[in-house]
Computed example of a mutant assay.
Amino acid sequence: MFIDSIILHNYRAYKGHNETLFKPDKKNIFLIAGNNGFGKTTFLTSLVWCLYGKLMVDVDEKFRRDINDAQGYKNYARQSLHKEFANLVDSCHISVEERRQIVRNGYSSNNEYIKGIAQYYVEVSITNVFIPSIPCRTITIRRTYDYFLDIESIEVLIDGQVNELAKEVGYDIFINDFVLSKDIAKFFFFDAEKIVNLAEVKSIDEKRRLSIAYSEVLGIKKYEDIKRNLENLRLKFRKNAGSTISKTKLDKLTYSVEEIEEQIRIKETERETIDGEIQKYRAE
């Protein structure tokens, strides 16, 4: 999978239409550099938002904190319109009835100017994506937010056309299943701070999520799924082939294993709590 182009239109600090093309010459490596506060992190965030929208909280804890700080996703999305255009929209004198008409019927020729300043979007074009049973050269994903109407929309085009299968599945599910899973997105969208955070993972839950992500990236998960399915089939055949006494004994053992695994999970949680208390007492 290769990113062909990225367009940021009135997204945060990127005023107007900003297109970045990634045309490989000899090496498919591109460096984006700039001083602090000049939009590098915003550029990275725009990609995550374009692909996942409100589901970006599942990609990284940073996005979850940012959305919580904004007191919800709607406020977070509203804050992403370039400030100059947000001020212009706020200064528009629109009656309540006219607003209702726009919400109900869409923009008309009389208020089309509002749409031009109220909407921002991020568009990503990707090549070399393999989708089973769907011929595909380029996938274009565009996520748009309307500041005036508080409406978010997403459009996915395959080779410039709307694909009915992708539309029926749901674009957010399609992106997660066929373009880039949220579980492995953290390995594609990160900065230096994220590298430090990955190195300092301590809690069992974080380690478990990291392990799942590693399995996805390395392709191990597919083999683990096959192995698990084969083990389940083997157990099923054994159950069907065994005597009544053997089946009862196996059911008891299976139930015991489940109980023990649950106890292990409880003890791990207790251990995390105790470790936290120990750190607190040490600090005191």
Rank of each mutant, 00 (worst) to 15 (best):
L51P: 03
A70N: 05
K40C: 02
E268A: 12
P24E: 06
Y147T: 10
I226H: 10
R142H: 01
Y11A: 02
I220V: 12
G160Q: 04
A70R: 02
L253F: 06
S211T: 08
E84R: 05
L180T: 06
R65T: 10
K236L: 06
N197C: 00
S203M: 01
K40E: 05
A283K: 15
S181M: 01
G219A: 04
N18I: 13
E98F: 10
I220D: 08
A241D: 15
G53D: 07
E98D: 15
S133T: 09
T41G: 05
E216S: 13
K280N: 10
Y14C: 07
D25F: 13
F190R: 01
I204D: 09
K15H: 10
E277S: 08
I226A: 11
T244I: 13
I184L: 11
K194E: 03
V124M: 12
F188C: 13
R228L: 10
N105V: 12
K236D: 12
F85Y: 14
I175Q: 00
N110F: 14
Y255Q: 10
R65M: 13
I134L: 04
G242E: 15
S246I: 11
I94D: 11
E262Y: 11
Y113N: 13
K26P: 07
L157G: 06
N128S: 05
N75Y: 09
S109P: 11
V59N: 03
D66G: 02
V48K: 02
I264G: 07
D225Y: 07
F148R: 07
K62N: 13
L21A: 09
K15S: 12
E216K: 12
E200M: 08
K239M: 15
E61K: 08
A77K: 00
N163S: 08
E155A: 07
Y107M: 04
E270G: 06
R265Y: 10
C50W: 03
T45G: 12
D251W: 09
T138I: 14
Q71L: 15
V96M: 07
E231C: 14
I139A: 04
I173W: 06
S246T: 08
S91N: 06
I3Q: 00
L21Q: 08
D66I: 08
A241T: 13
A33V: 13
Y14N: 00
V179I: 15
R234S: 14
E152P: 09
S108W: 00
H82V: 11
I139C: 06
D183W: 02
F190I: 03
R12D: 08
A213S: 14
I6A: 02
E155W: 03
P24F: 01
D58I: 00
N163M: 05
K249F: 12
D191K: 05
G34Q: 09
I175P: 02
V96L: 09
E19D: 04
G53K: 00
T248N: 10
E272G: 09
S243W: 02
E164W: 01
P24G: 03
V57P: 05
F188A: 07
R265T: 02
I29Q: 05
I32D: 00
I114D: 01
N10Y: 02
Y147V: 06
I264T: 04
R282I: 11
G116Y: 00
